[in-house]
């Protein structure tokens, strides 16, 4: 299912599902616009909260369908692949606040895949980012951490940032390397950091 480690800081307590999760129609995507919007918001929040709780940064659709996130076993209700895809599509749109993004699909291709998804479940194996924090927000978090620990001006490897004991109690501990790079690139663009190094061993210097 998820791509990265499952050892999060708050993993001891079971995830508290929202009340909608126990309501059977929640698992049918509504045709009425206002109801549908409300439902999509609820789903978006649920997915983000679930991923935050389990410290997941991306999901694979086909695998996630079987997890408790999309499958309420005691209620015997399950979200269909098509509806789940619609929810992720909505989350990645501007309307959904870009809280998700299909991995490996350019924005233009997304439309094509959406069309393909309509007639077949070919694309359900697609992975998608769940931005319970967006790259910009991650950048802010990283910068704040660097500031707080007085490491401005020093050089850190990406591995250090993600996996070292020093960041063990940070939210970005165990962050996906690709997402970490994207977040740092935001800082680079702002002129707050500089990245260097090559394959496998990349470093970053904060200004």
């Amino acid at each position: 299912m998820a791509s990265t480690s499952a050892a999060g800081p708050s993993n001891n307590k079971p995830f508290q599902f929202p009340p909608h999760y126990a309501f059977p129609p929640f698992f049918t995507l509504q045709p009425t616009l206002s109801t549908r919007t409300s439902q999509l918001h609820s789903w978006s929040q649920l997915i983000q909260a679930y991923c935050r709780h389990h410290h997941l940064f991306s999901l694979t659709l086909i695998d996630a369908l079987a997890t408790p996130l999309f499958h309420n076993a005691p209620l015997r209700r399950q979200l269909s692949a098509r509806d789940a895809r619609a929810i992720v599509d909505w989350m990645s749109s501007a309307e959904g606040d870009s809280r998700a993004e299909w991995i490996g699909a350019a924005p233009k291709k997304a439309a094509a895949t959406a069309a393909a998804a309509a007639d077949g479940d070919e694309d359900t194996r697609g992975r998608f980012w769940v931005f319970w924090r967006k790259p910009e927000e991650w950048a802010g978090v990283l910068e704040a951490w660097v500031d707080a620990t007085g490491q401005r001006g020093s050089v850190l490897t990406l591995y250090e940032l993600a996996e070292s004991d020093a960041t063990a109690n940070q939210e970005f501990h165990g962050i996906d390397a690709e997402l970490l790079q994207r977040s740092l690139m935001v800082l680079v663009k702002r002129g707050k950091a500089q990245m260097f190094g090559g394959e496998g061993e990349m470093g970053v210097k904060f200004f």
């Binding site: 059977p24 049918t28 009425t32 109801t35």
Partner: peptide, 12 residues
Amino acid sequence: AEEKGMLCREQG
């Protein structure tokens, strides 16, 4: 009634 937002549906 659904269209007026009073009901919702469940496709089971």
